[in-house]
């Protein structure tokens, strides 16, 4: 039992790894996750619009993109993109692996987000688009002002879930090789664990992940519940008294 506690919950080692975990690891994990999510959201909505498009030259490539990136293991895609781009000489961010990690996670996330956006947009009653079009709004304006905002609201919990997934997936970026100051939570825990032959630093990293992900999960559940039960409409009909209405009544 003592061995168990020592292997996983050695307070001394945990205290030792904590400054790096919070100062370097947490920061990098959040930078990776938030930047990748920003890419995933922006690109995801574009792919979603292509997915629902009736033009096959928009529709098919989007479909293939989504199927591919959702079908492959994350680590494989990170390797392919993160090593492939620099290998092909596409190195707009220099040789550091970090930006390619962000791009990989962002592109993978975009495939999942696109499907979420698509289902959200398609859950909006067709009458909304028709009403907007009937008022003379062009298709893109109607989508941007009327349909997409409602669709996003319906899938906001699912999008938040996806963010949680991206936070966890940042732990795979280390395969691209990170400089000391670029290491995220997992890599920092793993490095020290290997150095000292004890898993407590990794457990400490795990706890930091949980502090981010568990509250978010509960937030998602709460949101989901609120969306599902909806607000109770207060229905009060008052007699139409003003101008036209009263004139009309006399007719």
């Amino acid at each position: 039992m003592n061995d168990f506690i020592n292997m996983f919950f050695n307070i001394e080692l945990i205290t030792k790894v904590l400054p790096d975990l919070v100062g370097v690891g947490l920061m990098n994990t959040l930078i990776l996750a938030v930047s990748a999510t920003a890419i995933a959201l922006a690109f995801g909505i574009v792919i979603a619009m292509a997915l629902i498009s009736r033009h096959r030259w928009l529709n098919w490539p989007a479909r293939i993109y989504v199927d591919l990136l959702r079908g492959l293991p994350v680590i494989l895609t990170i390797f392919l993109i993160g090593q492939g781009l620099p290998y092909m000489g596409v190195q707009p961010f220099g040789p550091s692996a970090y930006p390619y990690g962000i791009i990989s996670l962002g592109l993978i996330g975009a495939a999942y987000m696109a499907e979420i956006f698509r289902s959200g947009i398609q859950s909006i009653h067709h009458g909304q688009l028709e009403a907007a079009r009937a008022l003379g709004m062009p298709y893109t304006t109607s989508m941007a002002m009327i349909v997409v905002p409602q669709g996003i609201r319906n899938v906001f919990p699912a999008l938040t879930n996806q963010f949680i997934g991206i936070v966890k997936d940042t732990s795979l970026v280390y395969v691209l090789g990170l400089a000391v100051g670029e290491r995220e939570l997992y890599r920092i825990g793993q490095d020290m664990s290997q150095r000292v032959g004890n898993l407590s630093p990794l457990v400490a990293a795990g706890i930091v992940y949980l502090i981010i992900t568990v509250p978010l999960t509960y937030y998602v559940n709460w949101l989901d519940n609120r969306l599902r039960t909806g607000r109770v409409p207060v229905i009060v009909e008052e007699p139409a008294t003003k101008a036209i209405a009263s004139e009309g009544a006399k007719a």
Binding site: H125, G127, E130, A131, A134, L135, G136
Partner: peptide
Amino acid sequence: NELRSHVGMVFQSFNLFPHMTVERNITVS
């Protein structure tokens, strides 16, 4: 679009925009 802006239409299912106030429903177009 120009044509439709001169042709008003009212639907059986109202089709108001639920994410907007009543005023915004009118001002947006």
